[in-house]
Simulated assay, not measured.
Amino acid sequence: MKGDTAVSDKILEVSDLEYSFDTYAGEVHAIRGVSFYVNRSESLAIVGESGCGKSVTVQSIMKLIPTPPGRFKRGKIIYCGSDITDYDDRQMEKLRGKEMSMIFQDPMTSLNPTMRVGRQISEGIRKHEKISTGEALARSVELLKEVGISDPERNVMRYPHMFSGGMRQRAMIAIALACNPKILFADEPTTSLDVTTQAQILEMMNHLKREFEMAIVLITHNLGIVARFAERISVMYAGKIVESGSTDDIFYSPRHPYTWGLLNSVPAVGKKRTEKLSTIKGTPPDLFMPPAGCGFYDRCDYRMKVCKENDPPAREIGEGHFASCWLLDNRAPGVTPYVAKRHTIESSGKGVM
Rank of each mutant, 00 (worst) to 15 (best):
residue 173 I to P: 04
residue 324 S to P: 08
residue 27 E to R: 15
residue 150 S to G: 06
residue 84 I to F: 01
residue 13 E to T: 01
residue 164 S to Y: 11
residue 112 N to W: 03
residue 333 P to D: 06
residue 256 H to P: 06
residue 254 P to G: 10
residue 315 R to H: 09
residue 321 H to M: 09
residue 181 P to V: 07
residue 43 S to V: 11
residue 315 R to I: 15
residue 266 V to F: 08
residue 330 N to G: 09
residue 295 G to N: 10
residue 220 T to S: 04
residue 187 D to Y: 02
residue 299 R to E: 03
residue 344 T to Y: 12
residue 46 I to P: 04
residue 276 K to Q: 15
residue 3 G to A: 12
residue 224 G to S: 13
residue 16 D to L: 07
residue 169 Q to V: 01
residue 88 D to M: 05
residue 87 Y to Q: 03
residue 323 A to S: 14
residue 160 P to V: 00
residue 239 G to A: 04
residue 18 E to R: 13
residue 255 R to K: 14
residue 217 V to W: 06
residue 266 V to E: 01
residue 177 L to H: 10
residue 19 Y to D: 02
residue 65 I to G: 00
residue 90 R to D: 12
residue 168 R to C: 13
residue 95 L to P: 03
residue 309 E to C: 01
residue 148 G to Y: 11
residue 15 S to W: 09
residue 231 E to C: 01
residue 185 F to V: 00
residue 306 V to K: 15
residue 58 V to R: 00
residue 151 D to V: 09
residue 19 Y to G: 04
residue 287 L to P: 10
residue 126 R to D: 01
residue 75 G to S: 03
residue 216 I to L: 04
residue 193 L to S: 14
residue 82 S to R: 15
residue 279 T to S: 13
residue 93 E to H: 12
residue 258 Y to H: 12
residue 68 P to V: 06
residue 16 D to W: 05
residue 160 P to F: 02
residue 43 S to K: 05
residue 95 L to M: 06
residue 301 D to I: 08
residue 310 N to W: 13
residue 225 I to S: 11
residue 36 F to I: 03
residue 6 A to N: 14
residue 325 C to N: 00
residue 264 N to R: 13
residue 47 V to Y: 13
residue 189 P to V: 07
residue 53 G to Q: 01
residue 187 D to T: 03
residue 11 I to M: 05
residue 173 I to G: 01
residue 292 A to S: 12
residue 61 I to R: 02
residue 56 V to W: 04
residue 338 Y to E: 11
residue 291 P to L: 10
residue 78 I to G: 10
residue 147 V to Y: 03
residue 139 R to V: 05
residue 113 P to N: 05
residue 299 R to L: 06
residue 191 T to G: 11
residue 309 E to K: 15
residue 116 R to W: 06
residue 160 P to R: 09
residue 178 A to Q: 10
